[in-house]
Simulated scan of single mutants.
Amino acid sequence: MLKLHVTNETSRLRAVVLGRAKSNGPAPTLEEAYDPKSKLHIKAGTYPKVEDMVEEMSAVASVFEKYDVKVYRPTVITDYNQIFSRDIAFVIDDKMVKANILPDRAKEIEAIEHVWSQVPKENRITLPEDAHVEGGDVMLYDDYIFIGTYRGEDYPNYITARTNMKAVKALTELFPNKTVKSFNLRKSNTIPQDNALHLDCCFQPVGKGKAIIHKNGFLEAEEYEWLVNFFGKDNIFEITKDEMFHMYSNIFSISEDVVISEKNFTRLNTWLRAQGITVEEVPYAEIAKQEGLLRCSTMPLIRD
């Protein structure tokens, strides 16, 4: 049995699910794309090639090996996008919560049955069907759970709105010992620079008490201000609209002192090193074209 344990984003990682790009299938049509960034690359003819994405994910697997992290991979489903394992389930404390994701992606959860079945039954959580949530919107910070959501009445019109208030309520009830704080995120089906697909597309804690953030990802200024005050202005790395588009806030922590980051994130990586953090740089620019990066393609199972 798996003894799950995750309480924050930065404690030393011991076990993780890393997505797969092996049989990603042909590039989707515009109608099939779920997010504006993928659409942009489909139109431009620059949608990522499977072999490039496989290579990028192998680079991440090598870093995990270097740090002695146990890696689980989804079983391969032919011609199916299985890169973003963060979306399909997530661990809070010792519980694994199955995410209610877009219906087109339901098969992805079957591909980690070998992980799910190792979790004690009482620790496997399935939310009510109308409670929509994806793991990219769920961010742990010890006694807090930060959740990205979209509170607009027009929620059903946004394929980019992935977590609703019903899920926020369900998670609040499931974890009464935690303070759950939700954040209303900016959504756009058409303009990738204006779309915070998940909370980790515009915010992430890193190191010891520090955070990466993009102001425009938040619809309500006071919710953004709350985070800045919570971490303290001096501990915040503000990213630009363009940096959010390139997914600067979607790096991944192996510990408080080690992160995996995209090799082109020069400004961020320089700042991280100035904080005393070791930056393991990997190429991930092809996967980023699908509006997801390192945090999106990893699902931690055990952190110290």
Rank of each mutant, 00 (worst) to 15 (best):
M1P: 03
H5G: 07
N8F: 01
L13R: 07
V16Q: 10
K22Y: 11
S23K: 10
P26N: 13
K43C: 13
Y47M: 13
P48S: 05
K49E: 15
E51R: 08
V60S: 02
V63S: 06
Y67P: 06
Y67A: 13
K70Q: 14
P74E: 12
T75P: 00
I77Q: 11
Q82T: 12
F84C: 12
I88C: 13
I88N: 10
V97Q: 04
P103G: 11
D104I: 08
I109P: 00
E113N: 13
R124L: 06
D130Y: 02
D130K: 08
A131D: 11
A131K: 09
Y141P: 00
D143R: 01
I147F: 01
G152H: 08
Y158K: 00
L171Q: 03
T179I: 05
T179Y: 02
S182Y: 02
L185G: 08
L185W: 00
K187F: 05
D194Q: 04
N195G: 09
L197Y: 11
C201P: 00
C202D: 10
F203W: 04
P205N: 02
K208M: 01
H214G: 15
F218E: 14
F218A: 12
E222S: 06
W226V: 03
N229I: 02
K233H: 11
K233N: 10
I236D: 07
I239N: 13
T240S: 15
D242C: 07
M247D: 14
M247C: 15
Y248A: 14
N250D: 15
S253D: 06
K263R: 13
P283C: 07
Y284K: 08
I287G: 02
A288E: 14
L293W: 00
L293E: 11
R295N: 15
S297N: 14
R303I: 00
D304G: 07
D304N: 06
